[in-house]
């Protein structure tokens, strides 16, 4: 079998190597910080929670040169943000402070503020999580979790799924194009589109399932189910600052939740 470069054919988000500010931090530390940011965004009431988190995430992303990636995330989140703003602007129950009147519609100030706050909270949450995968290679994350005791089966499932999705998407795109070329209507009326479920879904599903037998035999041949601990070829660094940050994040999560439960956060 011809050898190829490691990671050849795999997308950049799978093979990306750690390097530079925040990108070289330990994956578990980044997960702990993201957890803290998510908790802060949702548990701290009013504007301070989402704004503080957004500020921290944007500053970190800028320093790690990942602002452009966050921009794509923001673009992808625009439909939901638009929906949140529109629904709350016009339909917030109990709001009685109209900005203007357009026939039966009356956007309200309280709806606008509630919508903006919900959107800020949502974006803070999305950006905090996104920053982890924008700065961490999936195999680094899995290697670190394996070192911390996550089983090889879970590692295999996550790693294989992440690698399989781009290939399956490509195949699904080919199937959609092929079925359209054969005259399948994907733009017509509801029933015509509904009739396309089986011709599109079935080849994707059966195509993917054909790999199961071969992969099972390959794993069995490599003693995948054999008992005992596996040796990890590459382990991400876990320096003292990483450990301090990680524990500080965990303690901060406990403190924020505790203060909220005790009613000290308003």
């Amino acid at each position: 079998m011809a050898s190829s470069a490691p990671g050849a054919g795999l997308p950049e988000y799978v093979t990306r190597r750690a390097g530079g500010f925040y990108r070289s931090a330990n994956p578990s530390t980044k997960l702990a910080i993201a957890a803290l940011e998510v908790v802060a965004a949702f548990v701290v009431p009013g504007w301070p929670g989402p704004l503080l988190v957004l500020g921290a995430v944007l500053a970190t992303a800028a320093a790690a040169r990942r602002l452009r990636g966050l921009g794509v995330i923001a673009l992808a989140a625009s439909p939901i943000v638009g929906s949140i703003l529109l629904v709350n602007l016009f339909l917030l129950p109990g709001a009685s402070d109209p900005i203007a009147r357009f026939g039966p519609l009356a956007p309200t100030w309280s709806g606008l503020w509630f919508g903006l706050q919900t959107a800020a909270r949502l974006f803070a949450f999305s950006a905090a999580i996104a920053l982890v995968y924008l700065t961490t290679a999936v195999d680094d994350l899995l290697a670190d979790l394996a070192r911390r005791g996550l089983g090889r089966r879970a590692i295999f499932v996550v790693g294989a799924a992440v690698q399989m999705v781009p290939r399956t998407i490509e195949r699904a795109g080919e199937i959609v194009d092929a079925q359209r070329a054969r005259g399948m209507d994907t733009e017509g009326r509801f029933w015509q589109r509904a009739r396309g479920i089986v011709p599109l879904a079935a080849p994707v599903v059966f195509g993917a399932l054909t790999e199961v037998e071969e992969r099972t035999m390959a794993l069995d041949a490599r003693a995948f189910s054999a008992p005992g601990r596996q040796t990890l070829l590459r382990v991400p660094a876990d320096r003292a600052p990483d450990r301090v940050l990680r524990w500080a994040a965990v303690l901060a999560v406990v403190a924020i939740v505790g203060l909220r439960v005790a009613g000290r956060l308003g």
């Binding site: 790693g159 199961v212 794993l219």
Partner: peptide, 20 residues
């Protein structure tokens, strides 16, 4: 066999949910 089926099923979920 189930461990092999799981990532395939995850990919099916994501691809059918996102593209089809």
């Amino acid at each position: 066999r189930v461990i092999v089926l799981m990532p395939v099923a995850i990919a099916i979920n994501i691809v059918l949910g996102a593209t089809i």
